[in-house]
Design a protein around this nucleic acid. Structure first.
Lengths: 107, 107
DNA sequence: TAACTATATCGCCACATGGTTATGTTTAGA
DNA sequence: TCTAAACATAACCATGTGGCGATATAGTTA
């Protein structure tokens, strides 16, 4: 399946996981799950500074998770790789398994 | 699919992605793909310090990716959640798509 | 052109993190 | 019990990173 991943690619893969390993960025992705949003929209819904949102959007875009569309004064961001959510589901499954195993040990 | 993820879980998901967002840890996972290994095995194959390997193993274990088995003086680590590799495959797919899109722009 | 709005970027600071060396702990064997 | 081996943990340092406020830039409108 995921065999024989060239050593060089490891860095690229890590970069992507790293980009997803930040609650603030995951929250942005969740917000975008329902459709494209402007920076201002996100600033409002996430309750953090505009500079902060822009920085996170920049990272997610550079890693290929988001796409940018400029329209007048606004910039719309949208999910460009929906696989993200499958990955989140997998992670959730793992967490569930881990919690189950832990609660069995506690019995 | 991955809808309605409670806000509280976001932190847990991020923790897991974060654990995978480190080349050194990904390399350990790749090495374990072929079966369980002792800490010494990994120290040798990864070419870094034993303390460093142990620290990474601790993180991967705490996040539920690895399991530990002690035998005499040795400690064997093994993959406990094979979904990791599916996730890596997804990420690789994303990278490929991104590179393709980029090379088309360069034509 | 001037003023305003939306976004990007910069400079800074506090904190997290990866790596190293040194030390502790556990287990096996003499 | 003493020593040595395998691993874990602590202490430390250098670097990376998330957050903020301030500022620059681009596009709109008057």
């Amino acid at each position: 399946m995921a065999k024989n991943i060239p050593a060089q690619s490891i860095e690229l893969i890590a970069e992507r996981f790293h980009a997803l390993g930040e609650p603030a960025r995951l929250r942005i992705l969740m917000a975008l799950q329902e459709g494209e949003r402007t920076v201002s929209d996100l600033v409002e819904s996430q309750g953090t500074s505009q500079a902060n949102i822009s920085k996170h959007l920049q990272i997610l875009t550079a890693r290929g998770f988001l796409k940018r569309r400029k329209q007048g004064l606004n910039v719309f961001y949208a999910i460009s790789d929906k696989e993200i959510f499958n990955m989140c589901s997998m992670v959730c499954g793992g967490i569930r398994k881990q919690l189950d195993a832990r609660s069995k040990l506690m019995k």
